[in-house]
Amino acid sequence: MHRHHTAAALLALALVAGCASRTVPSSTYAQLGGAAGVEGIVDDLLNAIVDDERINQQFANADILRLREKLIERICAESDGPCTYTGLTMEESHAGRHITDAQFNALVEDLIQVMTARGIPVRAQNRLLLRLAPMHGDIVTP
Score class of each variant (00 low, 15 high):
Met90Asn: 06
Leu88Arg: 10
Asp43Val: 01
Glu53Ser: 13
Pro142Trp: 12
Arg97Asn: 11
Thr141Tyr: 07
Ala36Thr: 02
Gly33Gln: 09
Val114Gly: 02
Thr6Val: 12
Ile64Cys: 11
Arg131Phe: 11
Leu111Glu: 01
Tyr85Pro: 04
Asn47His: 14
Ile112Gly: 02
Gly81Pro: 01
Leu46Tyr: 02
Gln103Gly: 05
Arg54Asn: 13
Thr28Tyr: 13
Val114Lys: 01
Ala62Gln: 07
Cys83Phe: 08
Leu132Tyr: 14
Ala20His: 11
Leu67Phe: 11
Cys76Ala: 06
Gln103Glu: 13
Leu15Gln: 10
Phe104His: 06
Arg131Glu: 14
Gly96Arg: 04
His94Ser: 04
Thr89Ser: 15
Gly81Met: 07
Ala14Gly: 12
His136Gln: 14
Ala106Cys: 11
Leu46Trp: 08
Lys70Ile: 12
Ala62Ser: 11
Thr89Ile: 07
Ala36Ile: 02
Ala62Gly: 03
Asp43Asn: 15
Gln113Tyr: 08
Asp101His: 09
Tyr85Met: 09
Leu13Phe: 04
Asp52Ser: 10
Leu46Ile: 13
Gly37Leu: 03
Thr89Phe: 01
Asp51Ile: 02
Pro25Arg: 10
Val24Pro: 10
Ala95Lys: 12
Gln31Pro: 11
Thr141Glu: 14
Glu109Thr: 15
Leu107Glu: 00
Ser79Ala: 13
Leu32Gln: 01
Asn105Arg: 10
Gln125Asp: 08
Leu32Met: 09
Tyr29Gly: 00
Arg127Pro: 03
His5Asp: 12
Val42Leu: 04
Glu73Arg: 00
Val42Pro: 00
Ala48Gly: 13
Ser93Val: 06
Arg97Tyr: 03
Arg3Ala: 08
Met1Ala: 15
Gln103Asp: 07
Ala36Gly: 04
Ser79Arg: 04
Pro142Ser: 09
Cys83Lys: 04
Ala30Lys: 12
Ala60Trp: 02
Leu15Trp: 11
Ile139Glu: 05
Pro121Trp: 15
Ser27Arg: 08
Asn126Lys: 14
Ser26Leu: 14
Val50Cys: 08
Thr89Asp: 06
Val38His: 04
Val108Lys: 03
Gly87Thr: 08
Met115Leu: 04
Ser26Ala: 15
Ile112Pro: 03
Arg22Phe: 14
Val114Cys: 06
Pro82Tyr: 02
Ile139Arg: 06
Thr86Trp: 05
Asp51His: 13
Ala20Phe: 14
His5Leu: 14
Leu15Ala: 15
Pro121Val: 12
Phe59Ile: 03
His98Phe: 11
Pro142Asn: 09
Asp101Tyr: 04
Met115Asp: 01
Leu71Ser: 04
Thr89Val: 00
Gly119Cys: 07
Gln113Cys: 08
Met1Asp: 15
Phe59Asn: 07
Leu128Tyr: 07
Val24Arg: 13
Arg22Ala: 15
Leu65Thr: 13
Asn47Trp: 10
Gln57Asn: 04
Tyr29Gln: 03
Thr86His: 08
Gly87Arg: 02
Met135Arg: 00
Asp51Thr: 09
Ala60Val: 10
Pro134Gly: 08
Glu91Asn: 05
Ala124Lys: 02
Glu92Cys: 02
Gly34Met: 09
Ala60Thr: 05
Ile112His: 05
Thr28Cys: 14
Ile112Phe: 08
Val42His: 05
Ser21Ala: 14
Ile72Pro: 00
Gly18Asp: 10
His4Pro: 07
Met90Phe: 09
Glu109Asp: 15
Ile99Asp: 00
Cys76Ser: 07
Val140Pro: 03
Gly37Glu: 07
Pro82Cys: 03
Val38Ala: 02
Leu128Asp: 04
Ile64Ala: 14
Gly18Pro: 01
Asp51Arg: 13
